[in-house]
Design a protein around this nucleic acid. Structure first.
Lengths: 193, 193
DNA sequence: CATCTATGAGTCAACTTGTCTCACAGTGAG
DNA sequence: CTCACTGTGAGACAAGTTGACTCATAGATG
């Protein structure tokens, strides 16, 4: 009885339908009005379902926000292709293009900010960060093996050097990422043009 | 009658005292529990003053949050000293050390996130960003003149390359900034070791 | 068809929000 | 020192929100 949280399977189509509607509504609200708008009442209203149903699925508001965010997963930096430099350029370009979308920036910033006070959100952030670092590290290893990179760079440093400026440009400077900037970043981790 | 907003002078010591108490309490709440906790009621409680008084000074919650954030100003990248590279290294080190403090990270992220949905916060963010870019640009110009930099770098790009990774490291990777990372960034904008 | 069970609608107390009133004490001019 | 002024705290107030509950019902499952 009571509440079965995220991750628990419920094959009942009614459950699934409610869940989907709730998550869709929660994400829409997050994008339109920010995390403060993701309340049980607003979500229920937006989803066109009963308020009690939202409580049944996600008892606490933060769980609701967390679930709304975890929808957007990052398919970046998978399957490195040689030569690494052009492949990495493409990947960074794709990431930058996504970060320029308000909905992606919104989720990213909510994740970054929420992590300061909410340990569960911090876990989700750490997981996302670790995934990117691992994948980038694998790609850089290949670059070292194939001779594209002279020295091995610390993957954590490389990640912050490559992705940090993209995040800064799209969120703080509210601008778009140029190819010239991406090239500078690739130079910075040791790639030759 | 009604509300006199921030910027309006009121020489009455009682006003000043209330204002100070409110801002102190608002900042403390922002640090401890995040922007959602910065409400009129919580601030009044924290400051030990009447709830109505908070309304009198800042009628809307977002103004309250904005006022709480605008307290922390950035004294970074002022007065460039030659040679630029070691000076810039010191400045980035100082900025990184500050960003590692939870209270500074909290304000920065609140600014970044709030800017997505609140135009006034976006203005404040843009002002902070423009200031940093201008100062960094001035320092880089000096470096070009004195021969430390071979080519002139776009100040906006340089800012994202230098500061982006620091922000990423301290907020996404939840780690500390090493001198080696700072050196890599200085290399990336064209400085020689 | 008969039995579950998730849902929507509704009720309810506790709390929050924004506004207003009023007695009072700190302030500053005469 | 006295007095008019004004910002403040306490409280009242309606409107709205929150989280927890009940219950009839429609949809799902065997």
């Amino acid at each position: 009885m009571s509440h079965y949280n995220a991750g628990v399977t419920s094959t009942d189509p009614r459950s699934t339908r409610s869940r989907t509607a709730i998550l869709t509504a929660a994400r829409a609200l997050l994008l339109k009005e920010g995390p403060a708008a993701v309340t049980h009442q607003r979500v229920a209203q937006e989803a066109g379902i009963g308020r009690a149903t939202v409580y049944r699925h996600w008892a606490r508001p933060e769980q609701l926000l967390l679930a709304a965010m975890s929808g957007s997963d990052l398919p970046h930096f998978r399957d490195p292709a040689t030569p690494i430099r052009p492949w990495l350029h493409d990947q960074l370009r794709a990431l930058a293009t996504e970060m320029e979308l308000p909905e992606v920036a919104a989720v990213t910033l909510t994740l970054m900010q929420g992590a300061v006070w909410n340990p569960e959100i911090a876990d989700q952030r750490d997981h996302a960060t670790a995934t990117v670092t691992t994948r980038l590290g694998a790609a850089l290893d290949i670059a070292v093996e194939s001779g594209e990179l002279a020295t091995r760079v610390d993957p954590t440093d490389a990640t912050s050097i490559l992705i940090g400026p993209l995040v800064y440009r799209t969120t703080m400077q509210a601008g778009s990422v140029t190819d010239a900037l991406i090239d500078s970043l690739l130079d910075a981790v040791g790639f030759r043009r």
